[in-house]
């Protein structure tokens, strides 16, 4: 029983992180119909950004959130303006965009390798090892903070999408870009902003991951795939769906330890990805993804 509570608590904490990773990927796909394969690279970049700010300037990772988010936002807008926008017409959702952003990922990995070498790094703070007693189990303060941020982020995102002018335009473009052009919405500007916001969320997820896990330039591939599981399972454009899907993934992964050798638990996410795509392509909350 105690083990069960332990596992349940760690699944919930993990779910917060997974949801944060997935929001950005889902947002960009929902609006631009582009699968951002560079997502994993941006998560990795966010981790290093936090690590540099903490290591050389002594900024606490949680205080560096605004800066990391802002820088990732800029990176995302630049990626859209310089690269994604110039994709041949009609190919935006096809293999071309996939390969282009894959190329961006390789470049990001290489840049990180040149700057920071391939060694594993981690952000260690004074409270990294501190824990609280919750439901009879020890819960790391740091992981709890990550969960809180993971809950606040979608609320802010939802506020932005529902109640701001830009947010409404983003939702309108996601519905039908052609009619938006007709009524005078600057669709290119909305695409740029959306790519920026999606990338900013990935950067944030990277920063949060860095406070929990160690990372190197190859970090982010597993995170990309997990984000994808969550997006597909949760359905597009549904913040609640994303949250539930993240929880499902985290629970399955964490509890797999009871039946599988620990080495294979990381395969669970990949297998789930394939099963979800094949058998529940509409996700738990509708929205078909089959072409």
């Amino acid at each position: 029983m105690e083990r069960f509570v332990d596992l349940a608590v760690s699944a919930i904490l993990l779910a917060g992180l997974y949801a944060t990773m997935a929001y950005g990927l889902g947002l960009i796909y929902g609006v631009l119909r582009v699968v951002n394969l560079a997502h994993g690279g941006v998560i990795m970049a966010g981790a290093y950004l936090g690590w540099v700010l903490h290591g050389s300037l002594g900024i606490d990772p949680y205080l560096s959130i605004p800066l990391v988010v802002l820088l990732s936002f800029g990176l995302g807008m630049a990626m859209y303006r310089v690269l994604v926008r110039h994709l041949p017409r009609g190919a935006a959702g096809g293999p071309a965009s996939l390969l282009l952003l894959f190329g961006v990922w390789l470049v990001l990995r290489n840049v990180a390798y040149l700057l920071f070498t391939g060694n594993d790094q981690a952000i260690r703070t004074s409270y990294s090892t501190r824990s609280l007693l919750v439901l009879g189990t020890h819960v790391s303060v740091n992981r709890l903070a990550v969960l809180v941020i993971a809950l606040v982020t979608p609320a802010l995102l939802q506020l932005l999408l529902r109640h701001s002018h830009v947010g409404r335009a983003i939702r309108a473009v996601a519905q039908n870009a052609d009619s938006c052009t007709l009524v005078g919405v600057d669709v290119e500007r909305i695409y740029t902003l959306t790519f920026g916001i999606g990338t900013a969320l990935a950067g944030l997820a990277g920063l949060l991951s860095a406070t929990i896990f160690s990372f190197n330039p190859g970090f982010g591939s597993g995170e990309l795939l997990k984000s994808f599981v969550v997006v597909v399972l949760g359905g597009l454009g549904s913040v609640l769906g994303t949250g539930v899907a993240a929880l499902v993934l985290a629970v399955v992964e964490v509890f797999a330890i009871l039946v599988l050798p620990s080495y294979l638990t990381s395969a669970v996410g990949f297998v789930m990805l394939v099963l979800v795509l094949v058998f529940r392509p509409g996700g738990l909350f509708g929205h078909r993804v089959l072409g």
Partner: peptide
């Protein structure tokens, strides 16, 4: 075969999943 029902990016992403799962399982 089941993954071949998927088109475009969904097929590509599914193949990443199959490939990585195969790597882990066969290494184990």
């Amino acid at each position: 075969h089941p993954t071949l029902r998927l088109r475009g990016p969904y097929f590509s992403i599914a193949t990443i999943g199959v490939g990585e799962a195969a790597r882990l399982v066969f290494t184990y």
